[in-house]
């Protein structure tokens, strides 16, 4: 079974320069984090959803739906507990805290979506190049991309191992929380061990191919800024500056909200 997240399509978003795609991630964060009110988050949200659609990356969003649902529920509950307002609705829900929790939940979901957009449309190697292009050292960029690369490998081994243990009669559902944690031990130990083994071979293969042999490493891929890249860059900078100005002017806040 393969669990690779990169989608090998040729879309407008795929064709963007990796540096720009990384910057989109940063711009989106600025556009989202500054505002407390969900309505103010909406414009950036629309742009991000548009990006996902253009990149044809909804398949990947669908794949992590369980995670998104869990995050949504827990985030809405949590932010209603940790914030309060003046207009009481029911239980521990106030109008202000509810709005705020929606905004924070949107922030989390949309940032994940941004990450999905980035990884679905950018090859690992491009990501490394992009990070170097933005000033990170090669080794740091490589380490980050390696960590990302481990995700599908680990997911694949979890799949195989859970099948092996289910064949032996392990039933992961049911039982109290403590029992459930105990049930995961037969799963986790083989996952750890096979991951360690895999990374060991990976490390050997890496060194054997001359990783870090010379300072003057070359790159087969070439990053190139083309007109659409400049357009996205200018557009992103304008939006970010606009967002900061609006925030400084006090827009986007929820009156009467108290955070703990």
């Amino acid at each position: 079974m393969t669990v690779e997240l990169y989608l090998d399509y040729d879309t407008v978003i795929h064709r963007l320069d990796a540096r720009i795609k990384l910057l989109i991630f940063v711009f989106s964060f600025i556009g989202l984090v500054l505002f407390e009110h969900p309505l103010w988050i909406l414009p950036v949200a629309v742009l991000i959803l548009l990006q996902t659609t253009l990149a044809r990356a909804w398949v990947n969003v669908w794949r992590i739906r369980a995670l998104l649902i869990i995050l949504t529920i827990s985030s809405v509950i949590m932010w209603n507990i940790f914030a309060s307002g003046e207009t009481h609705l029911f239980w521990f829900f106030d109008l202000e805290s509810l709005l705020y929790s929606l905004a924070r939940t949107m922030l989390i979901l949309l940032m994940i979506l941004c990450g999905v957009n980035l990884i679905s449309t950018t090859r690992n190697e491009e990501l490394v190049l992009g990070m170097i292009g933005l000033g990170l050292p090669y080794r740091v960029g490589f380490a980050i991309s390696t960590a990302l690369r481990l995700v599908p490998t680990i997911a694949a081994s979890i799949y195989t191992i859970s099948q092996a243990q289910r064949s032996r009669g392990l039933d992961l559902e049911g039982g109290s929380i403590l029992e459930r944690i105990k049930k995961y031990i037969p799963l986790l130990i083989p996952v750890f061990i096979s991951t360690i083994r895999n990374t060991n071979v990976f490390g050997m293969a890496l060194e054997s191919k001359g990783f870090g042999a010379r300072e003057d490493r070359t790159f087969y891929l070439k990053l190139e800024m083309r007109p659409p890249d400049y357009f996205v860059l200018v557009f992103g900078v304008i939006l970010s500056v606009l967002a900061i100005i609006l925030d400084l002017r006090g827009f986007g806040a929820i009156p009467g909200l108290t955070r703990f």
Partner: peptide
Amino acid sequence: ELEIAFGPENFGVSR
């Protein structure tokens, strides 16, 4: 392609 390029990249081989 990139798999094959990885080794030469490390040794500064031209594109």
